[in-house]
């Protein structure tokens, strides 16, 4: 059997399949459906320094081959995560990776410092790409100097593996990836959702309470693949590929385009068992194509 292990900034993942933040709750909602120990890792729901109620309903619109969301980082704050949620989920034998958010650089630093203290949390994902909050979020990730500034600041506050989640709502994602690499990121994950909107013609009304929201699902996959390939060619740090992965073939495509590992997102809503099916499907693919190790797939696309 092929070796499924991958290495991200010195941290070993048992396989390259992880679940994307915002699509997997804190894992608990999926315990009914499969053994979470099988996952390479799980990126839990985005958290902030203070609790947030998120945006008003409606927060979701179905689109052609995808969906828009405008949840707006509803969460009870990092302290609640550390005191209440983490003790309930830490027994899972998989990397639990918090996704951190802030309105200011100071917010990010404080959240990172608190998580740095938790010995068994091996990594964080710095979210500078949430399109659904008024302050901070994507604003940090859409300009190179601010992406670098927040990454540098969090790097100083956080000793373990730092993954920076990039926004696709930029002119040159490779430039920003290079910037955060230089600022000390161990890895980048991409893409977060694409900014979009939906209109209800009959009601002559915007569908989302926030008008705009983040597009995800198979609709964004070609854009995500292109960006993963561009970033892979621009940086030396490993890349998490995200964007419309619905099955093992999609996951393999992302790895061939340059991803070292993947995050499965929106697909979890339709088939909560999909991460395990993808792990099995990748194993199958490696056997069929006679690979010894899954890491051989990374960037193996021929042109």
């Amino acid at each position: 059997m092929a070796d499924l292990r991958v290495n991200i900034g010195g941290l070993e993942f048992k396989n390259p399949v992880t679940t994307a933040s915002g699509t997997f709750g804190n894992g608990e909602e999926f315990e009914d459906f499969f053994d979470l120990d099988l996952l390479g890792g799980m990126f839990v729901k985005g958290m902030t320094l203070e609790p947030r109620e998120g945006n008003d309903y409606p927060r979701m619109a179905e689109t052609a081959s995808g969906m828009l969301n405008a949840v707006g980082l509803q969460n009870k704050g990092v302290d609640h995560f550390i005191k209440e949620i983490y003790p309930r989920i830490k027994h899972f034998d998989t990397h639990i990776i918090p996704n951190i958010n802030g309105s200011t650089v100071e917010d990010y630093i404080e959240v990172a410092e608190k998580l740095n203290e938790i010995e068994t949390i091996p990594a964080i994902e710095l979210n500078i790409s949430c399109p659904n909050v008024k302050a901070g979020g994507m604003l940090f990730g859409t300009s190179c100097p601010s992406a670098i500034a927040v990454t540098e600041a969090v790097r100083k506050a956080y000793d373990k593996v730092l993954i920076v989640k990039l926004s696709p709502n930029v002119t040159d994602i490779a430039e920003i990836a290079k910037g955060v690499e230089g600022a000390g990121a161990d890895s980048v994950s991409l893409i977060n959702t694409l900014l979009g909107m939906a209109v209800d013609a009959e009601k002559r009304k915007s569908v989302l309470s926030t008008v705009t929201g983040g597009l995800s699902g198979p609709a964004v996959k070609p854009v995500a693949l292109r960006m993963v390939w561009q970033v892979y060619n621009a940086v030396k740090i490993p890349v998490f590929g995200i964007g419309g992965i619905m099955n093992a073939t999609d996951a393999v495509e992302f790895m061939l385009a340059g991803a070292a590992a993947v995050q499965v997102g929106t697909a979890n809503f339709i088939d909560p068992q999909i991460p395990v099916k993808i792990i099995k499907g990748i194993e199958n693919y490696l056997e069929r194509h006679h690979f010894d190790s899954v890491s051989e797939l990374t960037g193996a696309m021929e042109i």
Binding site: F24, G25, E29, Y57, V71, F269, P272
Partner: peptide, 16 residues
């Protein structure tokens, strides 16, 4: 309310 997942993961269907 409109739901994406139906089992508590996505936080799309909230009510005040």
């Amino acid at each position: 309310n409109m739901m994406a997942c139906g089992f508590g993961a996505c936080l799309c269907c909230v009510t005040e």
